[in-house]
Write a protein that binds this DNA or RNA. Structure first.
Lengths: 373, 373
DNA sequence: GACCCACAGTGAAACGTTGCAATAGTGGGT
DNA sequence: ACCCACTATTGCAACGTTTCACTGTGGGTC
């Protein structure tokens, strides 16, 4: 039987050993501790590997070592752009370390999430980076107790039980509203989704905080315009309520860009000019925010960095025995474009405090809080 | 030592066996061939598994069985929306069968792709669904010979050496242009990327075919406006050349929606009305096409179905011994919105042949060609 | 020349699962 | 009472890798 014949039969370390006239152990050493095998032997073994096209069998490796060279990512939907950029960040960090990324979508359903986690636990992954579907994190605690490391993505855990990475949504809401207040606006509307959603609640809190810090009473400076869904349709439908506000707001903060697009469209149909008559600020800075007309001022989240940072946290938790769980918080960034301008009914007393005027830089981490293990 | 103590020590089939007072083989049977173990025993073993929280170790399973329960997807960029929707399709199909999806980005670099494939080959995945970075498919042929099944995504292979799934870009270009011709347009511009890119070349061929089928000479009916990059900036920069055409085109087909957005913006700045003065058709039907003003007529690709179909092909190749490679071709779909209208300088002779006026249906597969193994 | 060392390479056991051949158990028929 | 057919269960040998205690083998030292 000719070993060199390329066939579907998988090559093993043993084939390499035979052909290179060494023992199994030596081949393994070439693979894992090359410095301890003589240069000549090492070269010979390597040559045979290339010749045969040998690829190490990870299953056996894993079995022996106890854990696999893969990390798992479980998010609501792998086709959602927020997550895909984060996934790309995770991929870039982990690939450098020879890990492979397994993705699954939970569709924000606790049951689907459980299925994903089971599949993933079978794989004995190094750890799982997850955006939990459920408020209750009990099953994640159990997972961790069984030896699978868990990193929370876009969510902080209770009492430092997990490492986690999230963007500060309160700060984001504050940035958006502070921008408008600093431009001389005195009353603004907030088009927001259901406050049961943590992000929506946080962004609203930020907007109110901005009002207070600007010296206004949130209850009068801010007109809440809740919508059932943060979609373009939802935003468009909210316009009538925004315009009916009394006194009429001169600015609108939207809890995401889709809603902002709807608002822009609704305003255009109503004959209201942006930013001349009213300013609009979005949230997320999706690709198309810059391309709308007027181009949309928006709050950008460091999605890629979020993922990359989660991955780094996971690697750290694996390698560092003295690891204590950390909660990393990222600051979002305001990208000012042409949908926002000084309030029209008065000379703006303050100059715009434009935090960032173009958007190529990736946000840096600004706050790291440390909690006990 | 108390077995029930939840600890980081991983549970094995042996722990279950001891506690349920049966042999290893029986536990294995419960897992893999439950019908051949007596109901009472089966129930007892299952109870112990639940109690202990046993999760089968895939590494050992794989090692024994020879292949893993995972499929790999290698695309240019996992954060690109074309691919993410396809990945979601792959995920949905494979998860149902207990497989897990490993993703990697090649960044369209042959070298990065090779690294990804190596990592993935180590995993002994069931197969890899790949959008090749390179024209040369030699390494994929070798991969296949070594036993990893390969499915091409968004690309067809030469001579039926691979199963593949792709959208018919020629047809897509034809749909876009035929729509305009049927609306009475007689001269249209095509804003296209480099024709070295297969998609760009194909879409151009389709546009020219539409001209011929409408009874025009492609060389006079179509104004080629090449741009270096199919981006919004590229599209915007192309507007001057479109308008300078003589005779002036009354319609523009863009090779993607980003370019179309740029064209729309450029036209607005030039004071040209859409669709009154000129019609614009995009390609891809990205989320935001519907939200632009005017909303963009565009060619939609069945991205989700593309991925799902690739996954099905892979599963079929695995299970069916008599499998012969197939090339599945999907037809794109024209979504007519308000950026296109009958040509203005004449009463349109033909009514719009609106292929589809809203966009909720997923394209169906229309052509399946079969080739030898 | 005996002794010890460092170094290169070896061989076997283990990781957790599966599949198979063998064994024990159970009635039923003769 | 005996054998047979049949099912339920068992025990063991793989799967391919890594680790670790071990064996050779020269060279240097006293």
């Amino acid at each position: 039987m000719d070993v060199t014949a390329a066939g579907p039969r998988r090559l093993t370390i043993r084939n390499v050993a035979e052909r290179a006239q060494v023992s199994l152990g030596t081949v393994s050493n070439v693979l894992n501790r090359p410095e301890m095998v003589a240069p000549a032997t090492r070269a010979r073994v390597r040559a045979v590997m290339d010749e045969l096209g040998f690829v190490r069998n990870t299953a056996a490796h894993q079995l022996r070592m106890g854990n696999s060279r893969s990390v798992s990512v479980v998010v609501h939907d792998v086709s959602n752009s927020f997550f895909t950029e984060a996934i790309r960040g995770i991929e870039d960090v982990t690939n450098d370390n020879g890990y492979v990324v397994i993705v699954s979508s939970s569709d924000a359903s606790a049951e689907r999430e459980k299925r994903c986690l089971r599949l993933v636990e079978e794989q004995r992954v190094l750890g799982v980076i997850i955006t939990p579907a459920d408020k209750d994190l009990g099953h994640l605690v159990r997972l961790q107790e069984h030896g699978t490391r868990v990193i929370l993505l876009d969510r902080h855990g209770p009492g430092g039980g997990f490492c986690s990475v999230a963007v500060d949504d309160v700060r984001g809401g504050e940035l958006a509203a502070a921008h408008l207040f600093s431009q001389g606006h005195r009353r603004i509307a907030m088009v927001n989704g259901p406050t049961e959603i943590r992000q929506c609640a946080d962004r609203r809190r930020g907007v109110r905080r901005a009002a207070r810090r600007a010296g206004f009473d949130p209850d009068t400076a801010i007109l809440d315009v809740p919508v059932a869904a943060l979609s373009a349709a939802g935003g468009q439908g909210a316009v009538a309520r925004v315009l009916a506000g009394s006194p009429a707001p001169t600015g609108v903060v939207c809890a995401n860009d889709m809603a902002a697009m709807g608002v822009l469209r609704g305003l255009r149909e109503a004959g209201v000019r942006v930013p001349d008559d009213i300013s609009v600020v979005g949230y997320d800075d999706i690709d198309f925010a810059a391309m709308l007309s007027p181009s949309l001022t928006s709050v950008r989240q460091p999605k890629y960095e979020l993922g990359a940072s989660a991955a780094r946290l996971l690697l750290e938790e694996v390698s560092d025995a003295t690891h204590t769980h950390r909660e990393v918080r990222f600051d979002p960034e305001l990208v000012v474009r042409s949908s926002s301008a000084p309030a029209s009914d008065r000379t703006a007393s303050a100059k715009p405090d434009s935090v960032s005027t173009n958007g190529t830089s990736r946000s840096r981490r600004t706050g790291v809080s440390r909690t006990g293990a």
